[in-house]
């Protein structure tokens, strides 16, 4: 069985007018089917308001489907008895690193999750050390989060989730508020977790360059999944992505334009190296 599977997932929220009366319903997610297996690195792309963050919140019982079901490791997310097991299995990292820091020093913040799970003190210390080492933040364990850079804060947030020993981590636009250096740090940390620790990663983003590393990409727009496939497959459909208010990575775009101009370049070029090789051969 897949780690996460969503079947015909629909989420509606109530629209209200100025007086607070019900005005109608808006569908943030419309009949979404999603299958994510263990160890995958999945990227969910989509423009603002496409419902990708709402989808993410369904994966660890922060929101419940209006219709349809979401299963995490075989548990229905609406099952009240399993809610803590589900949240333990699916960790969440949010966009704003400042708004998810609970502790006054890094170490305490990482310990917050395991403390809530009622784990023995000695074990918590081990977990904190282990997860801070994984994101290369162990040297900063006694620092106050307010003194860290954005990228470092976000890595601490990832460590905080890791300390709960999740099966899967959902990252909701973790790099949207970071500078290029911080962005690179976070993406490197995420890829490391996926490659080395084999943790399932669901990365929600609208940065195309980050999605290149994924095993599978889902593209969302207006609550639907409009495209899916490997990065190569998805990024070779440049025009279709444009229609969904998304861009392709610069290199892919360049390759696309060159191919249009008559050069012999296959579609779906993702990295600079690939493009160089192609150009040298032709």
């Amino acid at each position: 069985m897949n780690l996460i599977s969503a079947r015909k997932l629909i989420f509606e929220y109530v629209r209200r007018d100025k007086n607070g009366d019900v005005d109608g319903f808006s569908r943030a997610i419309d009949e979404v089917d999603l299958e994510i297996s263990r160890g995958d690195f999945v990227a969910i792309l989509g423009p603002n308001g496409s419902g990708k963050s709402t989808l993410a919140k369904h994966l660890n019982s922060l929101l419940f489907p209006t219709e349809g079901t979401v299963f995490v490791d075989g548990w229905d997310t609406t099952d009240a008895e399993k809610i803590w097991d589900i949240r333990k299995s699916v960790g969440m990292v949010f966009q704003n690193p400042e708004n998810q820091m609970i502790g006054t020093i890094v170490e305490e913040d990482v310990a917050f999750g395991p403390e809530n799970m009622g784990i023995e003190p000695e074990n918590i210390k081990e977990r904190v050390k282990e997860s801070l080492t994984m994101v290369e933040m162990y040297d900063h364990r006694k620092t106050s989060p307010s003194k860290l850079s954005g990228g470092q804060k976000q890595r601490v947030a990832i460590a905080g989730v890791l300390a709960m020993h999740p099966k899967c981590i959902v990252l909701d636009e973790p790099t949207a508020m970071l500078d290029p250096v911080g962005r690179e740090e976070v993406i490197r940390a995420i890829r490391g977790l996926n490659d080395v620790e084999n943790i399932t990663i669901i990365l929600i983003t609208h940065n195309m360059e980050e999605a290149v590393f994924a095993d599978k990409i889902y593209v969302m727009n207006e609550g639907h999944i409009v495209m899916s496939g490997t990065p190569k497959e998805v990024f070779s459909r440049v025009d279709e992505l444009r229609e969904n208010r998304l861009n392709v990575p610069e290199v892919t775009l360049l390759a696309h334009e060159l191919a249009k101009a008559g050069l012999n370049i296959p579609p779906g070029i993702l990295t600079r190296k690939e493009l160089c090789n192609c150009l040298c051969r032709s």
């Binding site: 803590w84 969440m92 809530n116 009622g118 003190p121 918590i124 904190v128 709960m164």
Partner: peptide
């Protein structure tokens, strides 16, 4: 935002909570 982050890290009040130190 913080409430969401706390909930997704299994926060459910003081009961059954342990301490690192």
């Amino acid at each position: 935002d913080l409430a969401l982050a706390m909930e997704s890290r299994c926060y459910r009040g003081g009961e059954g909570r342990t301490k690192m130190r």
